[in-house]
């Protein structure tokens, strides 16, 4: 069981800020593949991974990062703070 969060245009494209995923898979990439296969809006949001960043348990991470023990994964575009 894992919380998956979306921010900025990823949230808008998918149409929700947060959802729970039962079996996310072993890595972030497994989770991405599962989400892509769902519906076109997910496929569109995850079409270009170079335009996305991922955080695992609120720390910036990589798409090949393992998800064992993780409680929260977030997907978002490159950050624009400051």
């Amino acid at each position: 069981m894992m919380d998956v969060l979306y921010f900025a245009w990823v949230r808008e494209r998918i149409g929700l800020p947060k959802e729970r995923i039962e079996a996310p898979g072993a890595t972030v990439m497994d989770l991405v593949k599962q989400l892509r296969a769902r519906e076109e809006r997910y496929e569109a949001a995850f079409a270009d991974l170079s335009a996305l960043r991922v955080a695992v348990d609120q720390e910036l991470s990589d798409f090949d990062a393992p998800l064992a023990g993780a409680r929260e994964v977030a997907f978002f575009p490159p950050m624009t703070g400051g």
Partner: peptide
């Protein structure tokens, strides 16, 4: 580091519509 490592995203609402600011 704040610009590209802190999780903020800016969206500009102009008289032409709304657009996310690209990094």
């Amino acid at each position: 580091f704040l610009k590209s490592r802190a999780p903020f995203w800016k969206k500009e609402i102009t008289d032409d519509g709304a657009e996310w600011v690209a990094a």
